[in-house]
Nucleic acid binder design. Sequence first.
DNA 1: TTGAAAGCGCTAACAG
DNA 2: CTGTTAGCGCTTTCAA
Lengths: 342, 342
Amino acid sequence: MLSRHITLSDIAKKLNVSTVTISKALRGHPDISPKTTKLVKAMAEKLGYSPNFMARNLSARRSNTIGVVVPKIAHHFFSSIIEHIYNYAFEHNYEIILTVSQESEVREKKHIQTLLSMRVEGIIISIAQETKNYEIFDTVKSREVPLVFMDRTPDIAEINKVTVDDRSGAFNAIDYAIKLGYRNIGHFSGNTNINIGRERLLGFKQAMHSNGIEVNPDWVLESGFGEKSGYDLFMKLYKEKNLPDLIFAVTYPVALGIYMAANEVKMMIPDDIDIICFGNAQVQNFLLPPLSCVNQPTDEIAIKSLQVLIENIENKETFEPKQLIIDTNLILRGTCVKYNRG
Amino acid sequence: MLSRHITLSDIAKKLNVSTVTISKALRGHPDISPKTTKLVKAMAEKLGYSPNFMARNLSARRSNTIGVVVPKIAHHFFSSIIEHIYNYAFEHNYEIILTVSQESEVREKKHIQTLLSMRVEGIIISIAQETKNYEIFDTVKSREVPLVFMDRTPDIAEINKVTVDDRSGAFNAIDYAIKLGYRNIGHFSGNTNINIGRERLLGFKQAMHSNGIEVNPDWVLESGFGEKSGYDLFMKLYKEKNLPDLIFAVTYPVALGIYMAANEVKMMIPDDIDIICFGNAQVQNFLLPPLSCVNQPTDEIAIKSLQVLIENIENKETFEPKQLIIDTNLILRGTCVKYNRG
DNA sequence: TTGAAAGCGCTAACAG
DNA sequence: CTGTTAGCGCTTTCAA
């Protein structure tokens, strides 16, 4: 780092004033006369001054920075959410420090510690699928750093949460499918340790029950949220020669994994096996066949999460934890073939 | 921020030693006896101490942090690269500050200034498509902050660059297509202001020329790198009733835009119109039809970029700018239909 | 082996 | 309007 960087006192010396004057002038403080302010700014510009973020924040005791922890980034749902978070934060003058846990609890914990170390003013997190120990969140709380759980949340009371209505999203999808005539329906549920897995599974079961259909336990399989899970589970059922007619995939990547596996064993979607998944991505329109899904509005999730967080940051004393639930909607495309033939 | 955070002196008081002892002990400095070190660490743990990143870096004059600027994030190429960068940085004990320019020159500049302000030790950047003014990069240079341009680079000598071999990637794809029998080939070239647009266009033209085929200027269209560009250009040609047999799309999103447009006007890919694009994504296998592409190894791009950067950071005195060029390979799938029928 | 002193670059009080 | 003083939390000499 070595001081190739201009400091306040460099400018001060040039102008024969104190560093305080410079500091104030640069921030447009009303103490300083317009004349001096102009002069100072000009000199700063000329010298290529760039304020030392760390010194400034250390001194001012605030960082204007928000930490974000997501499990994955090369995944449409998260990359889209992150993009929205960046945009909104940018408009509201917060910096974002993004970290990626890679679905690892250890890494997640380390990232949170780093963020605390950076003295971020708040954290938005979507927890890793393997996360079981919630102590670290207590740590965050004890540091009085506002925290918002987004989409993937642990089961803790009195926290800020922004989730989608997973249960009714799943319910509506399956209920609709049943009304179309599907009976043999399976569900690749991801990890039911996490709310999204658990709730989607619940919605699935409720839809089955309320339509008087038995759930076949062979077809309701738990695993992860990625391509590999979809691929592996499909292959398992394929080898057992025990495939349902329709699979409800807990995420879009899981559905992709099914496409991959089906493709490999030359089974045709949607005729031999059909799919609906939770989570939308534009590209689903162009899959072979186009993939039906439960749409979760990523922009709304991102913006609401940030709004809650900022509100919490800016009204620490009076703020009460908020739980927002965002609606989903069913989008029917090439899969869910009975819809198209109906 | 208010001090809900434990400091060195909090620990020091508890233990009746100086902050210096604590500081050293915590960092495992050999000055301190194993006994005290153990005691200090235990107490720090107990109190939930987390070092103040800003204070530490301000004092130590280094941040152990690397800044990254990308134009987009909800795009497989970049999200994949970023994921690799995170992983590699994590292993090498650097923090990553990721920023997204959204293809905007203004935002890009602001982000770079923020990164400088944060005193990052180096920057990896993939420039926005509209960026024309390179002054900011001189600023970075004058601050002696190592800089690596990744994939999308400006035309400046004496800089670190990690790019793929865009020209021969494009050349090979088109040359191959021609040998398969295609004659009426168009190219949606993106923005040729940037190396990747320019080089891919060049490769395209060279392949055409070297096979003695005239380039039809109506079919070689410049625009952006996103879905919308592909969509708009396709619609333009469609309305003019002047479509080639094969379109070479400068990026995967541009190709997706073509899928969207073709779908809308009920033209069939690959029979009515065919596509090859630059850039790979796993999901391309499952498009209707699967999309042929020039594959760019994102892991290699990411890791090499970071390696060059870290080398530059750690050997500032002796380091010489490096230009790495990474090979591509052609992946033929459902599009490029003559291949499949050949 | 430990600690006192000084300072990183900046800002918040308070005085002048 | 401007400057002095003090201190944010930490690390780096250098002395004890």
